[in-house]
Amino acid sequence: MHQSLRRTLVVALPFALACAAVLTTYAALRDRLPDPLATHFPASGRANGFSSATSFVWVATGLLAVQGAVFAALVHRSSRSIGPPRLLVAVAYGESGLLGYLFPATLFANADVSDAADVRLPMWQLAVALVCALLAAAAGWLLAGADAPPAAGPAAEPHRLPLGKGEVASWTRTVTSRVLLGVGLALACAGAVLAFTVSPGSGLPMAVMGVIAVLLSGCRVTVDRRGLTVSPPVVRWPRLRVPLGRIEEATSRQVSAYDDFGGWGYRIRTGRSGLVLRSGDALCLRLTTGKEFVVTVDDARTAAALLNTLIDRAVSGAGRPVDAS
């Protein structure tokens, strides 16, 4: 079976099993559950939020089904150009393990209680859920199999983009990390579930981290007369700019996020740094300091050619451009 299809089936399996666990637990305990059901628990463990058993089961299975579909779609679309999907499989298993324990545990906590206000869900249950999540993530990592990183190619020969006298040009592309997007969505959903089932204080930090990860999972890369600018595609901050005056030369090459930089995001290595949102085509700048700055983006060859032309034009017009940052 093709590795991509196998991983898609593998990542959907734990969410299906978690849905089955919720439905089986509900079927076994239905006659022993109060109405309404205790579904929200603060740090004290004493219930302070309630809903009908039917709505709780619908929400639980719906959330698991949606997350399973999202992770399966992300893994299915994964390829060497967007980075290894093995981490996505591990995160998916961890998420399903966490929710696959918490939802049935909530139903068991309500069993044989006449008044839902008396239901308790102690904090050690959350600790057990986190252990289940870690064990499930480890199983997903092993079942996914090793990633085959893309072969890192040599840097292309520097070339120029022909521009007539007086002509101006700019180049821009957006790039998204499906790994960071998937992790961010998983954290946001898990935080929302914890805030709903346990307490706002336990889930809010995780949800905020997830939202931040989603917002920073993509960027817009722009090349123009000012140099290179990298910024989020929706908001204008944080923004990173490398002026023409700091660039000696621009090239493009294939990079592996994990093998070359040890992961995704803003990375720093000896003699080089960069914004690495996925594996694949990358714009590589040799700076005046002798260091290298890398940003992964499609059509990096055109961006490099335009940068070299702009540098040549600035040097021939008025000497090396001044750092205007």
Rank of each mutant, 00 (worst) to 15 (best):
V57R: 03
S231N: 09
A92Q: 02
S199E: 02
R220N: 10
A138C: 06
L283F: 10
R7A: 12
P84W: 03
G153E: 15
S96Y: 04
A156I: 05
G263M: 00
A69E: 09
T251G: 09
S170C: 06
A60E: 10
P122V: 02
P122W: 00
G265H: 01
G262Q: 04
R241L: 02
A250Q: 09
I212A: 15
L135I: 13
S252R: 08
R272F: 04
V66P: 11
P232I: 04
L135A: 13
A139D: 06
D259A: 01
S316N: 09
R278A: 01
A116N: 07
L310A: 10
S79C: 04
A90W: 03
E167R: 13
D35N: 14
E167K: 12
C189L: 14
S279Q: 05
V175Y: 05
R239Y: 07
P14G: 12
S170W: 14
L143A: 15
A138Y: 05
G218W: 01
S51N: 12
P36H: 13
F71A: 10
S81I: 05
L37F: 01
G265P: 06
V175A: 14
T229R: 15
L143S: 07
D112C: 04
P84Y: 03
F261Y: 15
T302L: 10
R173Y: 08
R7Y: 12
T289V: 06
F261N: 00
R6M: 03
H76M: 09
R320W: 14
S177A: 11
A188M: 15
G274N: 05
S325H: 01
L161C: 04
Q125E: 04
L9W: 15
V230H: 06
A213S: 15
A117G: 09
E167Q: 15
M123C: 00
S316I: 04
D147Y: 02
A148R: 15
S170A: 14
W171D: 10
G191W: 03
G201A: 10
G140V: 02
A138I: 03
T288V: 14
L277I: 05
T288C: 10
A318G: 15
A304N: 11
T25G: 10
G265D: 01
L277F: 08
A303K: 11
C219S: 14
L163I: 06
S79M: 02
L143H: 04
H159L: 05
F15T: 10
L102V: 02
L87R: 08
S96V: 04
G317C: 07
A188V: 13
T309N: 12
L33K: 00
A38K: 01
P205Q: 08
V22L: 12
F103T: 02
L23I: 13
G263W: 00
A303L: 12
L17G: 12
G97F: 01
D259Q: 01
P149R: 02
A16Q: 11
L187S: 12
A21H: 13
D260G: 01
G191T: 06
V66I: 15
Q254L: 08
R226V: 05
S55R: 14
G290I: 11
G263N: 01
L143T: 06
S4H: 08
W141S: 07
G290L: 10
A73P: 08
T251A: 12
P200W: 15
A109E: 00
M1H: 14
A16T: 13
F103A: 05
T270S: 12
V198T: 12
V214S: 06
W264E: 09
E95P: 00
P238E: 09
V179S: 08
V214N: 08
F196S: 13
Q3L: 12
S44D: 06
L194V: 11
L29T: 01
